[in-house]
Design a protein around this nucleic acid. Structure first.
Lengths: 203, 203
DNA sequence: TTTCATACTGGACATTTATACAGTATAAGA
DNA sequence: TCTTATACTGTATAAATGTCCAGTATGAAA
């Protein structure tokens, strides 16, 4: 898992396309459809890319079967980000504890990853320790949104209360905690994404 | 939606099989695969069943396309049960407010339906008004489980605290509410299912 | 009674599809 | 430098697949 053969940008595009077609059309594409999408004049180009993806362990091909492409479980699905190592990107391999299969039109935007909630600072809006929150990566958020923010090296989930160039206020949803005020010109501050919803699994 | 053309048992079996193959194999079956499954000696039998399903509005066929079967959204997916009319079965048409596409290995058991939460009686465990809770239909539950129960004509979601033939205690997870004690030999009491998890969508 | 829907078998055939082989060209490693 | 991986075009072909037509048989509806 850690030493994963890297894909060329073209191969990566192909893999994304396959994944996209599966979720949009409900079935994997044919070689011809891949060729059409990328402007290949021969279906064999698609075939060769597929073989490369098999060789590198990203997909399986069922031979003799139309549309017999399946994306290997370990690389499909949406990553669950557990504890975040200080300063590292959220989606760095060491932060991804697992991946889950998840298809559906449940949330209002696409889910880039799930973040496992630590602590009780959001318990009054029903977000509790261990919950998975669905995150869409974006910089633009508005007051009232529940956001994933990075303050210096720490990642936190709070309600955005106020935001301008000189001042940011993040509000915990728990009477025992106080608002966090940040001056982005002094402290390092970044919006990592917006919380689209919550997923909790009992047992 | 309400006056849905009914399927014959064979058609229903075919539809279930298609749905099963899609979720297991990641692509719809061919006519031949359907024929194989049901022991038809001709792929045309499958073709005719597919046409019947199209005619009755349960699926779409993309012509000339291998495996071009798609189950119509309105009949796939998992039902969301909103307010429950007194005395009616949870999954009665009038109680289903919507359906959502939902595939994945997220919950510990299969989700039969989602129930939309009313009120704040479970807020201390992070289940709040408007949340969807994933329910698995079953009679057997144990203390500690969050259950969907029917007391006389009312449906309620609570933590099961105690259960024997003469006494049942359901516990709201909110200090403002008191335990509900039922004598199943006097009151009508049924376990409708177990809550597997929570789904919440902001915005 | 005639029609129609259901549920099949059997055969035929055009398309779709997977997939091999022969090339061309470029860039990276050994 | 020789090899190997990448990224394509072009051609070919067997197998898979969709889909039509002609039957048979049954039961329900008109």
């Amino acid at each position: 898992m850690s030493s994963m053969k890297s894909l060329t940008s073209r191969q990566s595009e192909i893999l994304s396309f396959i994944s996209e077609v599966i979720s949009n059309e409900g079935m994997p594409p044919t070689r011809k459809e891949i060729a059409l999408k990328f402007g290949f004049k021969s279906a064999n180009s698609a075939e060769e890319h597929l073989k490369a993806l098999v060789k590198k362990g990203y997909i399986d091909l069922r031979c003799g079967t139309s549309r017999g492409i399946s994306i290997k479980k370990s690389f499909s699905g949406i990553p669950i980000v557990g504890s975040v190592a200080a300063g590292s990107p959220l989606l760095a391999v060491e932060n991804v504890e697992e991946r889950i299969e998840f298809n559906g039109n449940i949330f209002s935007d696409s889910v880039d990853y799930f973040l496992r909630v630590k602590g009780d600072s959001m318990q009054e809006v029903g977000i509790v320790e261990g919950d998975l929150i669905a995150i869409n990566k974006r910089r633009e958020v508005k007051p009232g949104d529940i956001v994933v923010a990075r303050i210096n090296d720490d990642v936190t989930v709070k309600t955005l209360f106020y935001l301008d160039k000189k001042k940011v206020v993040l509000r915990p949803e728990n009477k025992n905690y106080e608002d966090i005020e940040i001056d982005p010109s002094i402290e390092r501050f970044d919006i990592e994404g917006k919380c689209l919803g919550v997923l909790r699994n009992y047992n």
